[in-house]
Amino acid sequence: MSSSDSSSDPPKKKRAPGRPQALFTYDETIQIRLNSVQLLELDQKAIETGRSRSDIIRAALAGVQVLRSQPTPEEREQYRQLVKLATNLNQLIVQARVGQDVQDQARTTLAQVQQLLNALSPTAP
């Protein structure tokens, strides 16, 4: 047999797949001009969310609101207060089922809930 006979060569092993192919390729670039305040905002959002500047801009273009990864301590306290108020409302509902008049207490609690929700979401009507 000659060495040029390829039928006697063992078949080559296929390479294991490497990094999975990306769903989207980003092959276009743009330049964007921002003032110093806008750039600072973009950098702060990138730090807060742990995402890149490009990811934040892409998300904004897609209509997705870019959120912070952690609520502020003030927001955390407001969420705790909401949980307490929700518990109070649940207890008032139980009392109302038994026949007790709890309308005034329920209205007061609901007003507090609405006030907290407005504080957490200032864009809400």
Rank of each mutant, 00 (worst) to 15 (best):
residue 14 K to L: 13
residue 65 Q to L: 14
residue 54 S to N: 11
residue 113 V to C: 12
residue 124 A to L: 10
residue 83 V to D: 09
residue 48 E to K: 09
residue 20 P to R: 09
residue 28 E to A: 09
residue 8 S to I: 11
residue 4 S to A: 15
residue 114 Q to H: 09
residue 117 L to N: 09
residue 54 S to V: 05
residue 93 I to E: 11
residue 22 A to S: 11
residue 9 D to G: 00
residue 47 I to M: 02
residue 4 S to H: 15
residue 81 Q to V: 07
residue 29 T to L: 06
residue 57 I to S: 04
residue 89 L to H: 06
residue 59 A to C: 04
residue 124 A to K: 09
residue 102 V to K: 07
residue 55 D to I: 04
residue 17 P to C: 01
residue 82 L to R: 07
residue 49 T to S: 15
residue 24 F to R: 11
residue 42 L to W: 05
residue 108 T to C: 03
residue 78 Q to L: 15
residue 28 E to V: 12
residue 74 E to Y: 09
residue 25 T to L: 04
residue 98 V to M: 13
residue 6 S to D: 13
residue 58 R to V: 05
residue 109 T to C: 11
residue 46 A to G: 10
residue 56 I to V: 10
residue 22 A to I: 03
residue 61 L to P: 05
residue 41 E to R: 11
residue 23 L to G: 14
residue 84 K to L: 13
residue 108 T to H: 13
residue 114 Q to L: 07
residue 39 L to D: 01
residue 32 I to K: 04
residue 76 R to H: 13
residue 110 L to H: 10
residue 115 Q to M: 07
residue 46 A to L: 08
residue 23 L to F: 14
residue 119 A to N: 14
residue 112 Q to S: 11
residue 59 A to T: 01
residue 123 T to M: 02
residue 6 S to N: 12
residue 121 S to Q: 12
residue 116 L to Y: 01
residue 48 E to R: 11
residue 82 L to G: 00
residue 100 Q to G: 00
residue 107 R to Y: 08
residue 97 R to V: 01
residue 93 I to C: 08
residue 83 V to L: 10
residue 30 I to W: 03
residue 70 Q to G: 00
residue 90 N to L: 08
residue 70 Q to S: 07
residue 36 S to P: 00
residue 100 Q to F: 11
residue 22 A to N: 07
residue 106 A to I: 09
residue 106 A to E: 08
residue 85 L to Q: 08
residue 122 P to I: 09
residue 70 Q to P: 01
residue 35 N to F: 05
residue 100 Q to Y: 11
residue 47 I to V: 08
residue 93 I to H: 12
residue 63 G to H: 12
residue 48 E to A: 14
residue 64 V to A: 12
residue 55 D to L: 04
residue 24 F to L: 11
residue 65 Q to M: 13
residue 61 L to R: 08
residue 21 Q to E: 13
residue 74 E to C: 04
residue 37 V to P: 00
residue 113 V to I: 15
residue 41 E to G: 01
residue 47 I to T: 06
residue 42 L to G: 03
residue 6 S to Q: 12
residue 92 L to M: 12
residue 52 S to A: 06
residue 88 N to C: 04
residue 7 S to P: 00
residue 18 G to H: 03
residue 62 A to I: 00
residue 87 T to Y: 06
residue 68 R to F: 00
residue 15 R to L: 14
residue 51 R to F: 04
residue 33 R to G: 02
residue 107 R to G: 02
residue 70 Q to E: 14
residue 42 L to K: 05
residue 113 V to Q: 15
residue 45 K to W: 13
residue 99 G to V: 11
residue 75 E to C: 02
residue 108 T to K: 14
residue 44 Q to P: 01
residue 87 T to G: 03
residue 50 G to T: 10
residue 101 D to N: 15
residue 78 Q to R: 15
residue 95 Q to F: 10
residue 88 N to F: 08
residue 44 Q to E: 14
residue 123 T to W: 05
residue 119 A to C: 02
residue 101 D to F: 05
residue 35 N to A: 04
residue 30 I to H: 03
residue 93 I to D: 12
residue 54 S to R: 06
residue 123 T to A: 07
residue 112 Q to V: 01
residue 77 E to F: 12
residue 89 L to C: 09
residue 58 R to L: 07
